[in-house]
């Protein structure tokens, strides 16, 4: 990945959209514009939206389009600085001291200086992104899963692009990383964080866009079948489901249809492959009741609970 050189920033929104499309991501107007602005203004982007609409994928596509390596920090509850920023390699430090003691040099002052050198530092994603010699795309995934304290710590990183390590002094970014934060909106993020970011909301795609995306990812699927599949998906999203099928699930479904060699979506096909798009029993029942009956095809037994 490092072989590629960093490409110059896009010249226009249209240019950015083309570059993303080349990287395999069909961006809508706002997504293209915001990632364009992010590259031009060096601002972090906060991407929100329901699960599985391509938030993470956008960051990956930007990484591909710009030829930058992607550094990913997956957030979870209880994530702390040691796992996000850096950690001292304690074992290596101990070994080093022991080795010196064995060589009978004693653990003098110089040893102390040595063991707090960069060689003993375990870089975690945030430090990797900042200390990297070449510009990177930093993806902080599912930021809403962390605590507010962690968010506050991020502020320094996002606005100054530097990390202070007490033993070494501050580490400053030599190149500006492109930062994407994604959130499923399960918690309201703090104003301070939002203030520093550009905001992008990605929603479920429209019928046309979804069709385009499915065709892009599963080009072998019969266009007519793909059209019908997207129609069914769009109709299913209208229902009051626990978890509506996401874009990634509809791509999975398209792949499944191709694999089982379906030539039409009838009732039987839908019921057989329903578990690909919805993952709750009650949802499956509801779809069988509302959508499947509209499709043509033989009656199957025991489809409803």
């Amino acid at each position: 990945m490092g072989a590629k050189t960093d490409r110059p920033a896009p010249s226009s929104v249209e240019d950015e959209r083309k570059r993303l499309a080349e990287a395999g991501y069909l961006a809508d107007e706002s997504a293209a514009l915001v990632s364009f602005l992010a590259e031009r203004l060096d601002k972090p982007v906060l991407v929100e939206g329901p699960a599985g609409v391509g938030k993470t994928e956008l960051a990956k596509a930007v990484a591909r389009a710009t030829g930058r390596p992607l550094v990913r920090l997956q957030c979870y509850e209880g994530l702390d600085e040691a796992k996000a920023l850096y950690e001292w390699n304690y074992r290596k430090q101990l070994l080093h001291i022991q080795a010196r003691a064995a060589a009978d040099e004693g653990a003098g002052e110089s040893a102390e200086n040595e063991i707090f050198g960069e060689g003993f530092l375990l870089e975690r994603p945030l430090l990797t992104a900042i200390a990297s010699g070449e510009p990177v795309v930093l993806l902080i995934d599912e930021i809403d899963k962390t605590d507010q304290e962690f968010e506050a710590m991020l502020l320094e990183v996002l606005s100054e692009f530097q990390i202070s390590i007490p033993e070494l002094g501050p580490v400053e970014a030599t190149t500006q990383p492109l930062v994407f934060l994604t959130s499923n909106d399960s918690r309201e993020l703090t104003e301070a964080l939002k203030r520093r970011c550009l905001y992008l909301w990605i929603d479920y795609p429209s019928r046309e866009r979804e069709l385009e995306i499915v065709r892009l990812h599963v080009p072998d699927l019969d266009p007519k079948l793909a059209g019908k599949m997207v129609d069914v998906i769009q109709e299913i999203r209208e229902l009051d489901l626990k978890k509506p099928p996401s874009l990634s699930e509809s791509i999975d479904w398209a792949r499944t249809l191709l694999l089982i060699g379906a030539d039409d979506i009838d009732r039987e096909t839908l019921e057989q492959s329903l578990s690909i798009i919805v993952k709750h029993r009650t949802d499956i029942d509801l779809i069988a009741e509302r959508v499947a009956v509209k499709l043509s095809g033989p009656e199957t037994n025991g489809q409803t609970g």
Binding site: S30, L33, V34, L37, L46, E188, K194, L198, Y199
Partner: peptide
């Protein structure tokens, strides 16, 4: 573009 650019920088939810 004008509308989206303003929205991205100003409307944060």
């Amino acid at each position: 573009d004008f509308r989206e650019a303003l929205a991205a920088t100003v409307a944060k939810s």
